[in-house]
């Protein structure tokens, strides 16, 4: 099954809507609750990253019997130093975003912790692609 969602940068009023929708889908598919929670955490963080940092983004979800793949593609400033961005506590979020309790520098590490594999490619000035894979049989995690 494949699903595609569009996200507008800066639209905090809908931040979490994709994660919420996918959560319902995972429940309908009877995905293990603990696994589903991890997927939803990783997806929420990815979704918020697009809202907080990018101009627009697309989230593609691909689920089959053995794994879920989440690909988040955004048009935005990109990430200059991915290793730095991965460090917990490091963030380039604006003051306004931080005041809302976002931009704590925990997003990417939350995504890594809550997926079986994560790949980031980014081109500064163009955008970022984050791919998350989680296996559904629970053995690979």
């Amino acid at each position: 099954m494949q699903y595609r969602y569009k996200i507008a940068g800066g639209d905090f009023s809908n931040a979490g809507a994709v994660a919420s929708s996918v959560k319902k889908t995972l429940r309908q598919l009877n995905i293990d609750h603990r696994l589903s929670k991890r997927i939803v955490i990783a997806l929420y963080e990815g979704e918020v990253n697009v809202v907080a940092h990018a101009y627009s983004g697309i989230i593609d979800i691909d689920i089959d019997h053995e794994r879920i793949k989440i690909r988040i593609t955004d048009k935005g400033p990109g990430i200059v130093d991915i290793a730095k961005a991965m460090e917990e506590g490091y963030s380039t979020a604006s003051t306004q975003v931080r005041e809302m309790g976002f931009g704590a520098g925990m997003g990417l590490s939350n995504m890594k912790k809550n997926s079986d594999s994560m790949q980031i490619t980014s081109e500064p000035g163009i955008g970022t692609v984050v791919e998350l894979t989680t296996y559904l049989n629970g053995n690979e995690g």
């Binding site: 929670k37 955490i41 704590a104 925990m106 939350n110």
Partner: peptide, 12 residues
């Protein structure tokens, strides 16, 4: 007050 902290660590 950090949303990522709650998302990552609060329990059901």
């Amino acid at each position: 007050d950090l949303l990522s902290d709650v998302i990552g660590h609060a329990a059901e």
